[in-house]
Nucleic acid binder design. Structure first.
Lengths: 240, 240
DNA sequence: ACCTGAACACCGTTCAAGT
DNA sequence: ACCTGAACACCGTTCAAGT
């Protein structure tokens, strides 16, 4: 009956398993059910192996997830579009729009990269290609007149902001399902906005659904505007 | 010998337990050992009660943690300084400096508020006092000439940025201990910066320790600069 | 109404094998 | 060298009591 009935007592031959096969299965599992549903037992069952077999290739669960995040970071980098040719401000805007779009379209990548440690590039190759990307982004800003430091910091600020938005959206999404929309809206309905004239006019904005859409774009514009203002000031200042 | 020897067979009297006592114990436990170390069993042992006793007051672990976050949000609000009297830009800067300082000084609050769902204010009172705070912050910006919408969005952008920085610092802190500093630095050492002239000059900045300190301030200044620039443009535009 | 223990289905990992 | 099952110490929660 079960597909196992044949293999019930068979043991996998020596070279039949591999790091790559485990990672591939893990990626599929996280894709389908999310990181929080991922467990060593479930992966073992999916791959039809003993749980302990994976401990030959990975020290522990965390080590496996780290390798998985590294793989996710590689896939993410491949999805970034080529944006050469834009002026610096449009370049930044499009870069971080693409950044957000990719993570929103592929929740696996978001869960493995954004929601886990900020530095996923543990392997040498991944780290190298990350730095190359960074170098190109910094170059765009330096060519536009920013100092190297200002360029690096600008990229960092925008990254943190974009990551913050994605984390916010994620946390809202999975807490907002049952308990919040009910309890939160009930609590919200009871609020008396009489003493809060300003909030009364915008409190529609605090509806998560409404807020998130415009929010990211607005902050992106704000930070780029700050950069433009900074650039103009330093351009005037030195004089000679 | 053990303090339990007396009470070994005694059963707690009816009114001896309370929501407040459980939350207090839970807060202490999370303070001491962090959220990820928190478990129902540990809390029960600490309070010297049966594990199931807590399920009379809370539906489940998540429900308990939600209530705990609500309590944490209340404590956070009390720690915010009064900043009336500052001009709008200095006000924003000081507000979010205080925001970050509190969470850095009290990791419990950070773990319970920043690292969990973005909307912790489930109870009516907590939500109300949050909105009152929001109203005051928006008022500062509206008085300075911002539209209500721009003011609300400005606050949201700065919140997301500040939260993003705190999350980054947190994730770095607990992943950076053993595995990263060793493996990451090893990988970093192998990188050939020959083809990356800009990064070669700033890559000290990417050392987490160095980066984090100036990073927050820089982004704060950048966003406020963007706001100033926006304010000047709208002030000129309408004319009459 | 309030507190509890036994039992269940999970989890990650150690250890001592098997081949 | 590579794969495995039994066993351990945990976890959250259901259920069926106790008082």
């Amino acid at each position: 009956m079960s597909p196992k009935s044949q293999a019930e007592t068979t043991r996998r031959p020596r070279g039949s398993l591999s790091r790559a096969e485990i990672l591939q299965g893990a990626f599929a599992l996280v894709s389908d059910d999310g990181v929080e549903a991922f467990s060593m037992s479930r992966l073992a069952k999916k791959l039809d192996i003993g749980v302990m077999s994976m401990y030959w290739y990975f020290r522990n669960k965390d080590d496996l997830l780290d390798a998985l995040s590294d793989e996710a970071a590689r896939r993410f980098a491949e999805l970034l579009p080529d944006l050469s040719g834009y002026p610096w401000d449009e370049h930044l805007r499009e870069y971080f729009r693409a950044f957000r779009r990719i993570y929103r379209e592929q929740p696996v990548l978001r869960d493995l990269i954004i929601m886990r440690a900020p530095m996923q590039y543990r392997s040498h190759e991944a780290l190298h290609s990350y730095f190359e990307r960074l170098e190109r982004e910094i170059a765009v800003l330096v060519d536009a007149g920013f100092t190297i430091d200002a360029a690096a910091r600008a990229y960092a600020v925008l990254s943190i902001y974009a990551r913050g938005c994605l984390i916010n959206e994620r946390l809202f999404a999975d807490s907002g399902q049952e308990r919040n929309s009910a309890e939160y809206n009930a609590a919200l309905g009871q609020i008396d906005f009489a003493g809060m004239p300003y909030l009364a006019k915008v409190h529609g904005v605090w509806d998560p659904e409404v807020a998130m859409e415009g929010e990211f774009e607005h902050g992106l514009g704000l930070i780029i505007e700050g950069l433009r203002s900074m650039l103009e000031q330093t351009a005037k200042a030195p004089g000679t």
